[in-house]
Design a protein around this nucleic acid. Structure first.
Length: 823
RNA sequence: GCCGGAGUGGCGAAACUGGUAAACGCUGUGGACUUAAAAUCCACCGGUGCAUGGCACCUUGCGGGUUCGACUCCCGCCUCCGGCACCA
């Protein structure tokens, strides 16, 4: 190609120029419009840790492609950004460097916002929000009160997870492998009084509605399903011998009730003390068991030696009146079910081992075939379904059927009832830390717990606080904060000094974008119900049972409160893979961050964005490596040169060659591929590959003699190329679009549409196989019939040589594609 | 243990409904241009063999199967990643 001296690609000027113009013209501002369909594209907002890393770039570049694509497809797009700005790192920075958490946070926000702008991300900045802003947390507090009024926020004493690193309690979801999700410290157990949100009241709906989320990854749905952990079974009451008490157990196997030979209570079970009273040695053993406590990590628990203590007390099996020994065991959890289990050694492996160890009777009540079963011969519990035996009136009943029948039978006798049990626990939301939204409640000696009136919100976080961690809420030390008047009686009162889990802040931020500047209410029904639910949500899979579960819970509660018309916040979810360095996710605390600014400085934002999208399919983890950045940079420059060489070439107006159907086909095929890859497949990597092929094709076309090129067709092709490039390389596309002579932004243009007629080929190359092996290719008219294709294949010389006189047994023809000759 | 997902050239990957395995790109090799280099352009780039302008055979983690035809479907394994796990 000629043009050695086209203008240089000065990306930093080009990018700065357009970023400024976009901002001035507000081209990414979202305004409800009756004539268009809305599209709400959202990426999980970041914690303002200081700087962006390549993981952020990947997440936001993806969202940016999607939102630009849908805007060009004619949707009114809402694409906002904000800051998950409360949280511990701000306090830690304050402790380490003496900066106030607020100052540190706002400085980080300013810096990261600037970085996002340098990446050319098309956000509606007029809707920006920061959860640490009083104008935001005022409404977080308002929502807390809404939960409180609805009986969904309560205070309770329980064993809780305590992170010694963060000096605060954690919700169950925030403990990963026995360690704090944030700082990795091993979590300890403490008994404390804390605030909870009653997420368990929504367990059934959170589970059932997962089925509706057909545009969520199956993986995430399964993770939530496991986390909620539904078990269907029954509660059964066992009267205690010689006491006016009964012990209730939860079981999923009521069909094995006749095989109960013992029962086990959690060491903390309220009845234990009474059962062992007067037996000092047993009391001592129980105390020891309690003190040892339950190991924190699941894995430790699983390998824990099962220790049992015989209480000497007995209960009565309500099914057959048989006495059963009551034990206390370290493997029974007070938190799950009723804190008591019935022991059926013949049909539960744990019970089997326990019984063998302590010499407890084993009574088989389920038989694989209905025949007799010898307890002595059993080497393991039989946990499969079978036929009930030794079960009085139920003998001969298939066990699966027996489950319901036994429960009904117990129900008639007042000794049991059906029960659904969930693994999910209520959400512990109070935190003994400073940098969070204060819980808007007051403790009055006379009136008890009193909510702060909504018109008095926000309860402001005081600025002057000693936030060095000491296991108590830093706000406790701020007298002017703590001491207040009771809103109800006017008497002396004290404020709640715990702040809220920051996951509360992020459980509703996606709603607030719809009415971010509304200072009258948290949720403006009209705006929120217009923009929501989110049409495409994009973020990391690490939030599968954290943010994503909490947000679903919030949405359902607000729906029930009449604020929302919808029950699920995120229509479609895409979980992008991590960008790793040294095998670990990039994070500031790990110190393995690759700052995108270096790449932007060297190659420009368009290259940075396109590179991370091209490197791998977006759902796969990506180990960071710079090899390949050059390739994208080369590609972008190739586009630049292609355009300017054409634009500045003298022969542009005079190339009057005939239009090339091949070029048309290439252009339209590319439109088809790119559209499909973004819209249906969410695969920018293959979309970019398709655009590269188009550019390669255009170079080839340009290498023809000028007289054989069609100027008009070429211009059309270049216009299409720019439009297809716009979501991926927004600055480059904008610059070239302007140079095309266009006045209006390329990002406000209509996405190109392919013409199926242009895809049709006149001739196709058909593969000829003999016994499934590729032997030759023949060119036939695209419309060739099966017979014609077969004939063409059989008349190929190579095919004849291979056949060597043999007659085909069978010929398979795939029209337009392939002929397979079987001999 | 249970439940998901992944495994394809030197590397990142592609192959969408069972129909040409390796598109697109990186790296590398050779060449053109250049005083030279960079940039750019052209060619080659899975393996083995034949004694090499070509042809044959093999190749998508491993072993079987279905099919005219399998990266794709079925059965059995291996490795890695993720979730749940004494949940009664």
């Amino acid at each position: 190609m000629g043009g050695q001296t086209v203008k240089p690609y000065a990306f930093s000027e080009i990018e700065a120029k357009w970023q400024q113009r976009w901002q001035e013209q507000g081209i990414y501002r979202a305004t409800p419009r009756p004539d268009r369909q809305k599209f709400y594209c959202l990426e999980m907002f970041p914690y303002p840790s200081g700087r962006l890393h390549m993981g952020h770039v990947r997440n936001y570049a993806l969202g940016d492609v999607v939102s630009r694509f849908y805007r060009m497809r004619g949707y009114e797009v809402l694409h906002p950004m904000g800051w998950d700005a409360f949280g511990l790192p701000a306090e830690n920075a304050a402790i380490k460097r003496g900066v106030h958490p607020a100052d540190w946070t706002y400085a980080n926000i300013a810096y990261m916002r600037r970085q996002m702008q340098k990446l050319g991300l098309g956000y509606d900045w007029e809707r920006e929000l920061a959860t640490c802003d009083p104008e935001y947390y005022r409404w977080t507090q308002w929502l807390f009160l809404l939960f409180y009024e609805r009986g969904l926020a309560y205070r309770a004493a329980a064993r809780v997870n305590w992170c010694p690193g963060c000096q605060t309690v954690l919700a169950n979801e925030q403990v990963v492998d026995g360690a704090c999700w944030r700082c990795g410290s091993p979590v300890e157990q403490r008994h404390l009084e804390q605030w909870y949100l009653r997420i368990t009241a929504y367990a059934d709906r959170l589970l059932a509605d997962l089925e509706r989320l057909d545009r969520w990854p199956e993986r995430v749905r399964i993770m939530q399903q496991n986390w909620i952990g539904k078990s269907t079974g029954a509660e059964i009451d066992f009267p205690v011998e010689g006491l006016e008490e009964k012990i209730t157990v939860f079981t999923t196997r009521p069909d094995t009730l006749f095989g109960v030979t013992f029962m086990v209570l959690a060491p903390e079970h309220p009845l234990v003390d009474r059962l062992v009273a007067g037996h000092p040695d047993i009391e001592g053993a129980v105390r020891e068991l309690r003190e040892k406590g339950v190991p924190v990590t699941e894995r430790e628990r699983a390998t824990l030696e099962k220790i049992g203590i015989r209480t000497g007390a007995r209960a009565i099996n309500p099914a057959n009146g048989q006495p059963v020994e009551i034990w206390v065991g370290n493997y029974v959890l007070m938190e799950y079910g009723t804190g008591a289990v019935m022991g059926v050694p013949a049909h539960d492996q744990r019970d089997f081992e326990f019984a063998r160890r302590y010499g407890i009777r084993i009574v088989p009540v389920i038989s694989p075939d209905g025949g007799p079963v010898s307890a002595e011969a059993m080497e393991a519990a039989y946990e499969e379904p079978g036929i009930m035996i030794n079960s009085g009136p139920f003998d001969g009943t298939p066990s699966e059927e027996g489950k319901a029948r036994v429960v009904r039978w117990l129900e008639e006798r007042g000794a049991g009832r059906p029960k659904v049990q969930y693994r999910l626990r209520d959400w512990l939301i109070s935190r003994q830390r400073y940098w969070g939204a204060p819980i808007p409640l007051v403790y009055c000696d006379r009136c008890g717990i009193v909510p702060v009136p909504k018109e008095d919100l926000p309860v402001l976080l005081p600025r002057q606080v000693d936030f060095r961690p000491g296991g108590l809420s830093p706000l406790l030390g701020v007298e002017e904060f703590v001491n207040t008047r009771c809103p109800r009686c006017g008497g002396k009162a004290r404020r709640e000094t715990d702040t809220m889990d920051t996951f509360i802040d992020s459980s509703w931020y996606y709603l607030r974008y719809a009415c971010a500047r509304d200072d009258r209410e948290a949720i403006d029904r009209q705006s929120v119900n217009y923009w929501l639910p989110v049409d495409q949500y994009i973020g990391g899979v690490e939030h599968a049972v954290l943010h994503l579960l909490y947000s679903r819970f919030f949405t359902k509660v607000l729906h029930d409160a009449g604020l929302l018309d919808f029950e699920e916040p995120f229509q479609a979810l895409f979980t992008q893979g991590m960008v790793t360095l040294g095998g670990a996710a990039m994070s500031k605390s790990r110190g393995n961050i690759v700052d995108p600014e270096e790449i932007i400085g060297r190659y420009g934002a368009d290259t940075a964005r396109m590179f991370i999208l091209f490197a791998a399919p977006p759902d796969r983890d990506l180990e960071w490596s710079e090899s390949g950045v050059e390739g994208i940079y080369r590609f972008i420059q190739r586009v630049w040169r292609l355009f300017w060489d054409w634009k500045e070439s003298a022969d542009r107006a005079t190339s009057r060659g005939p239009a090339s159907p091949q070029l048309d086909r290439l252009v339209h095929r590319t439109i088809q591929r790119v559209t499909h890859d973004i819209q249906d497949r969410f695969q920018p990597n293959t979309a970019i590959a398709a655009i590269m092929e188009l550019v390669n094709g255009l170079y080839e076309y340009r290498s023809r003699p000028a007289a054989e090129q069609c100027g008009e067709q070429l211009e059309q092709a270049l216009r299409t190329l720019i439009l297809l490039l716009a979501p991926f390389a927004p600055h480059l596309a904008e610059e070239l679009w302007e140079a095309m002579g266009e006045k209006e932004s390329v990002h406000r243009q209509a996405w190109p549409v392919y013409d199926p007629a242009k895809l049709v080929e006149e001739e196709v190359t058909v593969v000829v196989q003999i016994n499934g092996k590729l032997r030759d290719r023949v060119v036939v008219p695209a419309a060739a019939s099966r017979e014609e294709m077969e004939k063409a294949a059989l008349s190929s010389e190579r095919v004849r040589a291979f056949l060597n006189g043999r007659t085909p047994r069978k010929v398979i023809v795939v029209p337009g594609k392939l002929v397979n000759i079987v001999v």
